[in-house]
Simulated assay, not measured.
Amino acid sequence: MARRPHPAARLEDAVRRRVNARLERRGWHERVSGYTGYGSVDRARVFARVTLSRTEPEERRTALTHAHDSLLDVAQRGWRVFLTAPATGVLVTVRLGAARASARSDRSGYVDVDLEGHGLPPGWQEASVAIDNGDSVTVSVLVVDPKVEVGLVSDIDDTVMITHLPRIFIAGWNTFVRSELVRQKVPGIASMYRALVAEDPRMPVFYLSTGAWNTAPALTRFLRRHDFPVGPMLLTDWGPTNTGWFRSGQEHKERELRRLVAEFPQISWVLVGDDGQHDPVIYGELAEEYPEEVEAICIRELTPAEQLLSSGLPVATDELLGKRADVPMLKAPNGYGLHQLLVTARGAHATGAERLPEGEVAKDQPGTAPQVRAHAIPDEDGGEEPRSA
Protein backbone atom coordinates (compact mmCIF):
# COMPACT_ATOMS: atom_id res chain seq x y z
CA MET A 1 0.00 0.00 0.00
CA ALA A 2 1.44 3.37 -1.03
CA ARG A 3 2.20 5.82 1.78
CA ARG A 4 0.42 9.16 1.82
CA PRO A 5 2.61 12.16 1.01
CA HIS A 6 4.02 14.11 3.93
CA PRO A 7 1.66 16.81 5.28
CA ALA A 8 4.12 19.50 4.17
CA ALA A 9 4.04 18.17 0.61
CA ARG A 10 0.22 18.04 0.62
CA LEU A 11 0.09 21.63 1.87
CA GLU A 12 2.55 22.80 -0.77
CA ASP A 13 0.61 21.00 -3.50
CA ALA A 14 -2.67 22.60 -2.37
CA VAL A 15 -1.14 26.09 -2.43
CA ARG A 16 0.36 25.48 -5.87
CA ARG A 17 -2.94 24.26 -7.29
CA ARG A 18 -4.69 27.44 -6.20
CA VAL A 19 -1.90 29.68 -7.46
CA ASN A 20 -1.67 27.86 -10.79
CA ALA A 21 -5.42 27.98 -11.32
CA ARG A 22 -5.41 31.74 -10.82
CA LEU A 23 -2.43 32.20 -13.15
CA GLU A 24 -4.06 30.07 -15.85
CA ARG A 25 -7.24 32.15 -15.65
CA ARG A 26 -5.06 35.20 -16.26
CA GLY A 27 -3.72 33.65 -19.44
CA TRP A 28 -0.39 32.20 -18.27
CA HIS A 29 1.06 29.36 -20.34
CA GLU A 30 3.14 26.27 -19.74
CA ARG A 31 6.79 26.81 -20.67
CA VAL A 32 9.64 24.32 -20.62
CA SER A 33 13.22 25.10 -19.60
CA GLY A 34 16.22 22.80 -19.90
CA TYR A 35 19.52 22.13 -18.18
CA THR A 36 22.82 20.68 -19.34
CA GLY A 37 22.61 16.89 -19.77
CA TYR A 38 25.20 14.17 -20.07
CA GLY A 39 25.63 10.59 -21.14
CA SER A 40 27.71 7.90 -22.80
CA VAL A 41 27.73 6.81 -26.43
CA ASP A 42 24.97 4.33 -25.53
CA ARG A 43 22.61 6.38 -23.38
CA ALA A 44 22.07 9.90 -22.10
CA ARG A 45 20.31 11.81 -19.36
CA VAL A 46 18.43 15.07 -19.95
CA PHE A 47 16.95 17.42 -17.34
CA ALA A 48 14.12 19.91 -17.79
CA ARG A 49 11.37 21.75 -15.93
CA VAL A 50 7.89 22.94 -16.81
CA THR A 51 6.57 26.14 -15.23
CA LEU A 52 3.81 28.65 -15.89
CA SER A 53 4.77 31.90 -17.59
CA ARG A 54 2.99 34.97 -18.94
CA THR A 55 5.11 34.57 -22.09
CA GLU A 56 3.56 32.84 -25.09
CA PRO A 57 4.86 29.37 -26.09
CA GLU A 58 7.81 29.56 -28.45
CA GLU A 59 9.56 26.99 -30.62
CA ARG A 60 13.27 26.22 -30.65
CA ARG A 61 14.53 28.46 -27.89
CA THR A 62 18.06 27.84 -26.64
CA ALA A 63 18.51 26.96 -22.98
CA LEU A 64 20.97 28.78 -20.75
CA THR A 65 23.64 26.08 -20.72
CA HIS A 66 27.41 26.04 -20.80
CA ALA A 67 27.59 25.67 -24.54
CA HIS A 68 25.84 28.96 -25.36
CA ASP A 69 27.91 31.98 -24.35
CA SER A 70 25.64 34.64 -25.83
CA LEU A 71 22.98 33.97 -23.20
CA LEU A 72 25.26 34.35 -20.18
CA ASP A 73 25.07 38.12 -19.76
CA VAL A 74 21.94 38.56 -17.66
CA ALA A 75 22.54 38.86 -13.93
CA GLN A 76 19.87 39.18 -11.25
CA ARG A 77 19.30 38.91 -7.55
CA GLY A 78 18.85 35.37 -6.30
CA TRP A 79 15.29 35.64 -4.98
CA ARG A 80 13.86 36.17 -8.45
CA VAL A 81 14.78 32.66 -9.64
CA PHE A 82 12.69 31.10 -6.84
CA LEU A 83 9.45 32.89 -7.82
CA THR A 84 8.18 30.12 -10.10
CA ALA A 85 4.91 28.27 -10.58
CA PRO A 86 5.73 24.63 -11.42
CA ALA A 87 3.37 22.76 -13.74
CA THR A 88 2.68 19.18 -12.65
CA GLY A 89 1.87 16.21 -14.88
CA VAL A 90 2.80 17.87 -18.18
CA LEU A 91 3.99 15.50 -20.91
CA VAL A 92 7.55 16.35 -21.98
CA THR A 93 9.14 14.83 -25.08
CA VAL A 94 12.92 14.70 -25.48
CA ARG A 95 14.77 13.97 -28.72
CA LEU A 96 18.50 13.35 -28.90
CA GLY A 97 19.94 12.01 -32.12
CA ALA A 98 18.02 8.86 -33.00
CA ALA A 99 16.53 8.53 -29.50
CA ARG A 100 13.16 9.76 -28.33
CA ALA A 101 11.60 9.52 -24.86
CA SER A 102 8.69 11.06 -22.97
CA ALA A 103 7.97 11.68 -19.29
CA ARG A 104 5.56 13.72 -17.19
CA SER A 105 6.73 16.52 -14.93
CA ASP A 106 6.74 15.72 -11.22
CA ARG A 107 5.07 17.71 -8.45
CA SER A 108 7.77 20.39 -8.74
CA GLY A 109 7.66 20.52 -12.52
CA TYR A 110 10.90 18.60 -13.10
CA VAL A 111 11.65 15.78 -15.51
CA ASP A 112 14.72 13.55 -15.52
CA VAL A 113 14.74 11.54 -18.74
CA ASP A 114 16.97 8.63 -19.80
CA LEU A 115 17.41 7.98 -23.52
CA GLU A 116 19.02 4.93 -25.12
CA GLY A 117 20.42 4.46 -28.61
CA HIS A 118 20.94 8.10 -29.56
CA GLY A 119 23.80 7.12 -31.89
CA LEU A 120 25.80 10.33 -31.36
CA PRO A 121 29.62 10.52 -31.07
CA PRO A 122 31.51 11.85 -28.01
CA GLY A 123 31.50 15.59 -27.43
CA TRP A 124 28.89 18.29 -26.99
CA GLN A 125 25.56 17.48 -28.62
CA GLU A 126 22.10 19.07 -28.61
CA ALA A 127 18.75 17.69 -27.48
CA SER A 128 15.27 19.04 -28.16
CA VAL A 129 12.84 19.28 -25.23
CA ALA A 130 9.20 20.03 -26.10
CA ILE A 131 5.70 20.06 -24.62
CA ASP A 132 2.35 19.66 -26.35
CA ASN A 133 1.49 23.37 -26.63
CA GLY A 134 4.39 23.86 -29.05
CA ASP A 135 6.90 25.31 -26.59
CA SER A 136 10.35 23.76 -27.01
CA VAL A 137 13.94 24.39 -26.03
CA THR A 138 17.33 23.12 -27.16
CA VAL A 139 19.73 21.95 -24.44
CA SER A 140 23.38 20.91 -24.44
CA VAL A 141 24.31 17.29 -23.70
CA LEU A 142 27.85 16.10 -23.01
CA VAL A 143 28.50 12.64 -24.48
CA VAL A 144 31.52 11.34 -22.57
CA ASP A 145 34.26 9.67 -24.61
CA PRO A 146 34.44 5.94 -23.72
CA LYS A 147 38.25 6.14 -23.85
CA VAL A 148 38.58 8.82 -21.19
CA GLU A 149 40.07 7.49 -17.95
CA VAL A 150 39.86 10.42 -15.50
CA GLY A 151 36.89 12.57 -14.49
CA LEU A 152 36.30 15.41 -12.05
CA VAL A 153 33.38 15.88 -9.65
CA SER A 154 33.25 19.21 -7.85
CA ASP A 155 31.07 20.57 -5.10
CA ILE A 156 29.98 24.19 -5.62
CA ASP A 157 29.16 25.87 -2.31
CA ASP A 158 32.38 26.92 -0.51
CA THR A 159 34.39 24.87 -3.01
CA VAL A 160 34.18 26.98 -6.16
CA MET A 161 32.02 29.79 -4.75
CA ILE A 162 32.05 31.21 -1.22
CA THR A 163 28.54 30.91 0.23
CA HIS A 164 29.03 30.12 3.96
CA LEU A 165 26.62 27.18 3.92
CA PRO A 166 24.87 25.69 5.88
CA ARG A 167 24.37 28.70 8.21
CA ILE A 168 20.83 29.47 7.09
CA PHE A 169 20.73 33.27 7.51
CA ILE A 170 24.02 33.97 5.75
CA ALA A 171 23.28 31.38 3.08
CA GLY A 172 19.85 32.90 2.59
CA TRP A 173 21.30 36.41 2.25
CA ASN A 174 23.89 35.20 -0.27
CA THR A 175 21.34 33.16 -2.23
CA PHE A 176 18.22 35.31 -2.19
CA VAL A 177 19.36 38.93 -1.72
CA ARG A 178 22.85 39.57 -3.05
CA SER A 179 23.39 40.05 -6.76
CA GLU A 180 25.23 37.16 -8.36
CA LEU A 181 27.81 39.63 -9.69
CA VAL A 182 29.24 40.17 -6.20
CA ARG A 183 29.63 36.50 -5.32
CA GLN A 184 33.23 35.51 -4.67
CA LYS A 185 35.15 32.62 -6.15
CA VAL A 186 37.48 30.39 -4.13
CA PRO A 187 41.07 31.29 -5.14
CA GLY A 188 42.87 28.82 -7.38
CA ILE A 189 40.05 26.34 -7.98
CA ALA A 190 39.30 27.44 -11.54
CA SER A 191 43.01 27.42 -12.33
CA MET A 192 43.30 23.89 -10.94
CA TYR A 193 40.35 22.63 -12.99
CA ARG A 194 41.61 24.23 -16.19
CA ALA A 195 45.02 22.63 -15.68
CA LEU A 196 43.45 19.20 -15.18
CA VAL A 197 41.29 19.57 -18.29
CA ALA A 198 44.34 20.73 -20.28
CA GLU A 199 45.93 17.32 -19.60
CA ASP A 200 43.02 15.67 -21.43
CA PRO A 201 40.37 17.95 -22.97
CA ARG A 202 37.97 14.98 -23.09
CA MET A 203 37.86 14.79 -19.27
CA PRO A 204 34.30 15.30 -18.02
CA VAL A 205 33.68 17.83 -15.26
CA PHE A 206 30.53 17.49 -13.16
CA TYR A 207 29.34 20.10 -10.66
CA LEU A 208 27.48 18.27 -7.88
CA SER A 209 25.65 20.41 -5.34
CA THR A 210 22.77 20.37 -2.89
CA GLY A 211 21.64 23.66 -4.46
CA ALA A 212 18.26 23.99 -6.16
CA TRP A 213 17.78 23.66 -9.91
CA ASN A 214 16.36 27.19 -9.83
CA THR A 215 19.90 28.49 -9.36
CA ALA A 216 21.34 26.65 -12.38
CA PRO A 217 21.33 29.67 -14.74
CA ALA A 218 23.01 31.88 -12.12
CA LEU A 219 25.58 29.19 -11.32
CA THR A 220 26.25 28.73 -15.03
CA ARG A 221 26.90 32.45 -15.42
CA PHE A 222 29.18 32.41 -12.36
CA LEU A 223 31.24 29.49 -13.65
CA ARG A 224 31.53 31.07 -17.10
CA ARG A 225 32.42 34.48 -15.65
CA HIS A 226 35.32 32.99 -13.69
CA ASP A 227 36.49 30.70 -16.51
CA PHE A 228 35.69 27.31 -14.98
CA PRO A 229 35.61 24.34 -17.37
CA VAL A 230 32.21 23.58 -18.85
CA GLY A 231 30.28 20.63 -17.52
CA PRO A 232 26.84 19.35 -16.46
CA MET A 233 25.36 20.25 -13.09
CA LEU A 234 23.69 17.75 -10.79
CA LEU A 235 21.42 19.80 -8.54
CA THR A 236 18.28 19.02 -6.55
CA ASP A 237 14.94 20.48 -5.55
CA TRP A 238 14.39 22.31 -2.28
CA GLY A 239 11.30 22.12 -0.13
CA PRO A 240 8.97 19.40 1.15
CA THR A 241 9.03 15.87 -0.21
CA ASN A 242 6.71 12.90 0.06
CA THR A 243 8.60 11.80 3.17
CA GLY A 244 9.60 14.99 5.02
CA TRP A 245 9.88 18.75 5.25
CA PHE A 246 13.16 18.94 3.36
CA ARG A 247 15.19 16.83 0.95
CA SER A 248 18.43 15.31 2.17
CA GLY A 249 21.33 16.98 0.41
CA GLN A 250 23.69 14.28 1.63
CA GLU A 251 21.55 11.51 0.13
CA HIS A 252 21.37 13.44 -3.13
CA LYS A 253 25.17 13.60 -3.38
CA GLU A 254 25.62 9.95 -2.43
CA ARG A 255 23.05 8.83 -4.99
CA GLU A 256 24.49 10.90 -7.86
CA LEU A 257 28.08 9.84 -7.13
CA ARG A 258 27.15 6.16 -7.19
CA ARG A 259 25.26 6.67 -10.41
CA LEU A 260 28.30 8.28 -12.06
CA VAL A 261 30.48 5.38 -10.93
CA ALA A 262 27.98 2.89 -12.39
CA GLU A 263 27.51 4.79 -15.66
CA PHE A 264 31.22 5.33 -16.32
CA PRO A 265 33.05 2.30 -14.88
CA GLN A 266 36.20 3.08 -16.87
CA ILE A 267 36.69 6.47 -15.18
CA SER A 268 38.75 7.13 -12.07
CA TRP A 269 37.35 10.20 -10.33
CA VAL A 270 39.01 13.18 -8.68
CA LEU A 271 36.51 14.37 -6.04
CA VAL A 272 36.75 17.98 -4.88
CA GLY A 273 34.84 19.45 -1.95
CA ASP A 274 35.28 21.36 1.30
CA ASP A 275 35.31 20.55 5.00
CA GLY A 276 32.42 22.85 5.89
CA GLN A 277 29.70 20.26 5.34
CA HIS A 278 29.80 16.50 4.68
CA ASP A 279 32.01 16.21 1.61
CA PRO A 280 34.92 14.41 3.35
CA VAL A 281 32.52 11.82 4.77
CA ILE A 282 30.58 11.32 1.53
CA TYR A 283 33.73 11.10 -0.59
CA GLY A 284 35.48 8.87 1.91
CA GLU A 285 32.62 6.39 2.00
CA LEU A 286 32.53 6.28 -1.80
CA ALA A 287 36.29 5.67 -1.95
CA GLU A 288 36.01 2.91 0.64
CA GLU A 289 33.30 1.24 -1.45
CA TYR A 290 34.96 1.88 -4.85
CA PRO A 291 38.71 2.32 -4.24
CA GLU A 292 39.60 1.66 -7.90
CA GLU A 293 37.12 4.28 -9.15
CA VAL A 294 38.43 7.14 -6.98
CA GLU A 295 41.86 8.53 -7.78
CA ALA A 296 42.01 11.21 -5.10
CA ILE A 297 39.91 13.29 -2.73
CA CYS A 298 40.73 17.00 -2.64
CA ILE A 299 39.28 18.95 0.28
CA ARG A 300 39.40 22.71 0.46
CA GLU A 301 39.94 23.70 4.10
CA LEU A 302 37.76 26.58 5.22
CA THR A 303 39.34 29.38 7.22
CA PRO A 304 38.42 29.56 10.94
CA ALA A 305 36.05 32.44 10.14
CA GLU A 306 34.37 30.45 7.36
CA GLN A 307 34.12 27.39 9.60
CA LEU A 308 32.48 29.51 12.28
CA LEU A 309 29.91 30.79 9.79
CA SER A 310 29.42 27.36 8.25
CA SER A 311 29.16 25.08 11.27
CA GLY A 312 29.20 27.34 14.32
CA LEU A 313 32.71 26.14 15.28
CA PRO A 314 36.08 27.64 14.29
CA VAL A 315 37.42 24.23 13.23
CA ALA A 316 36.10 21.24 11.30
CA THR A 317 34.29 18.75 13.52
CA ASP A 318 35.47 15.15 13.81
CA GLU A 319 32.63 14.07 11.52
CA LEU A 320 33.86 16.42 8.78
CA LEU A 321 37.46 15.22 8.89
CA GLY A 322 36.53 12.38 6.57
CA LYS A 323 36.20 8.63 6.54
CA ARG A 324 39.53 6.88 6.04
CA ALA A 325 39.91 5.06 2.75
CA ASP A 326 42.71 3.65 0.66
CA VAL A 327 43.00 6.73 -1.57
CA PRO A 328 44.86 10.01 -0.99
CA MET A 329 42.85 12.67 0.82
CA LEU A 330 44.56 15.97 0.06
CA LYS A 331 43.77 19.13 2.00
CA ALA A 332 44.68 22.75 1.34
CA PRO A 333 43.09 26.17 1.85
CA ASN A 334 42.80 26.95 -1.87
CA GLY A 335 43.05 25.48 -5.35
CA TYR A 336 46.72 26.28 -5.75
CA GLY A 337 47.65 24.09 -2.81
CA LEU A 338 45.28 21.29 -3.82
CA HIS A 339 46.68 21.22 -7.35
CA GLN A 340 50.25 21.11 -6.02
CA LEU A 341 49.41 18.15 -3.79
CA LEU A 342 47.52 16.33 -6.54
CA VAL A 343 50.38 16.69 -9.02
CA THR A 344 52.88 15.46 -6.43
CA ALA A 345 50.68 12.53 -5.42
CA ARG A 346 50.26 11.52 -9.06
CA GLY A 347 54.00 11.69 -9.59
CA ALA A 348 54.67 9.56 -6.54
CA HIS A 349 52.10 6.98 -7.68
CA ALA A 350 53.51 6.85 -11.21
CA THR A 351 57.04 6.19 -9.96
CA GLY A 352 55.96 3.80 -7.24
CA ALA A 353 57.59 6.02 -4.63
CA GLU A 354 56.59 5.90 -1.02
CA ARG A 355 57.28 9.62 -0.56
CA LEU A 356 54.28 11.68 0.44
CA PRO A 357 53.53 15.13 -1.00
CA GLU A 358 55.29 17.95 0.77
CA GLY A 359 53.28 19.83 3.36
CA GLU A 360 51.83 19.14 6.76
CA VAL A 361 51.14 15.41 7.03
CA ALA A 362 48.35 14.40 9.35
CA LYS A 363 48.78 11.48 11.72
CA ASP A 364 46.88 8.48 10.44
CA GLN A 365 45.83 5.12 11.67
CA PRO A 366 47.80 2.10 10.43
CA GLY A 367 46.53 0.63 7.19
CA THR A 368 44.82 3.78 5.96
CA ALA A 369 45.75 6.22 3.25
CA PRO A 370 47.55 9.37 4.43
CA GLN A 371 45.78 12.66 4.73
CA VAL A 372 48.07 15.42 3.48
CA ARG A 373 47.72 19.14 4.00
CA ALA A 374 49.51 21.79 2.02
CA HIS A 375 50.84 24.97 3.54
CA ALA A 376 48.89 28.06 2.51
CA ILE A 377 49.80 29.44 -0.89
CA PRO A 378 49.15 33.18 -1.30
CA ASP A 379 46.93 34.39 -4.10
CA GLU A 380 48.75 35.76 -7.11
CA ASP A 381 48.23 39.13 -8.80
CA GLY A 382 45.93 40.47 -6.14
CA GLY A 383 43.76 37.39 -6.06
CA GLU A 384 43.44 36.83 -9.81
CA GLU A 385 44.09 33.28 -10.89
CA PRO A 386 46.97 32.60 -13.28
CA ARG A 387 45.88 31.15 -16.61
CA SER A 388 46.90 27.53 -16.94
CA ALA A 389 44.77 26.46 -19.88
Rank of each mutant, 00 (worst) to 15 (best):
T93L: 09
I299H: 07
P240W: 02
A44F: 03
W213Q: 08
V141L: 09
R18A: 15
V160L: 04
D381F: 14
D379K: 09
T84P: 02
V270M: 09
V41M: 05
Y193I: 00
A195D: 14
A305R: 14
L320M: 14
R3H: 12
T51M: 11
R183C: 05
G34E: 08
V205H: 05
G37V: 05
A101R: 12
Y38V: 06
A353K: 10
M161C: 03
A63E: 11
V111L: 01
M329G: 00
R258A: 05
Y283K: 02
A262Q: 15
L271M: 08
E58M: 13
I282F: 01
P229F: 02
L330V: 03
R194C: 04
T159K: 01
L152I: 15
L321H: 08
G383I: 00
A14M: 12
Y35S: 03
G322S: 00
E384A: 14
T344H: 13
E58A: 11
Y336V: 06
V205S: 01
P280W: 02
T243E: 13
T220M: 08
L257I: 04
F176W: 12
V129S: 03
V74S: 12
T65P: 03
L302M: 07
L72F: 06
A63G: 04
A44I: 02
R95Y: 11
Y110W: 14
I131P: 00
V270R: 07
L338F: 08
P121H: 00
V19A: 13
V148Y: 11
V19E: 12
R4N: 15
L120S: 00
D227W: 10
A14G: 08
L320R: 15
N174H: 13
P265R: 02
M203I: 12
R54M: 09
E126W: 15
D279I: 02
R16K: 09
G39K: 02
V281P: 06
R31P: 04
E56N: 15
F228C: 01
A350P: 04
A350K: 14
V129N: 04
V41K: 07
V113E: 05
R346A: 01
W124M: 08
G276Y: 04
T51D: 15
S388C: 10
V182Q: 11
L152M: 06
F169Y: 15
V81F: 06
H6F: 14
Y336G: 12
R324G: 04
A103H: 03
E360P: 05
A63I: 01
V150N: 08
L152Y: 07
T88V: 13
A190Y: 03
T351G: 04
G284W: 08
R45L: 12
V153I: 07
G273P: 08
L320I: 12
G231K: 03
G37I: 07
A2D: 11
E251L: 14
S102T: 10
R10I: 07
S102G: 07
A103T: 02
G109P: 06
L302Q: 06
S310W: 10
L196H: 09
S191K: 05
N20D: 10
G382K: 02
L83P: 00
A332E: 02
K147I: 07
E24M: 10
H68V: 11
S33V: 13
V186R: 10
A2L: 13
R202A: 13
L342D: 03
S70H: 12
G97S: 03
L72A: 09
D279K: 03
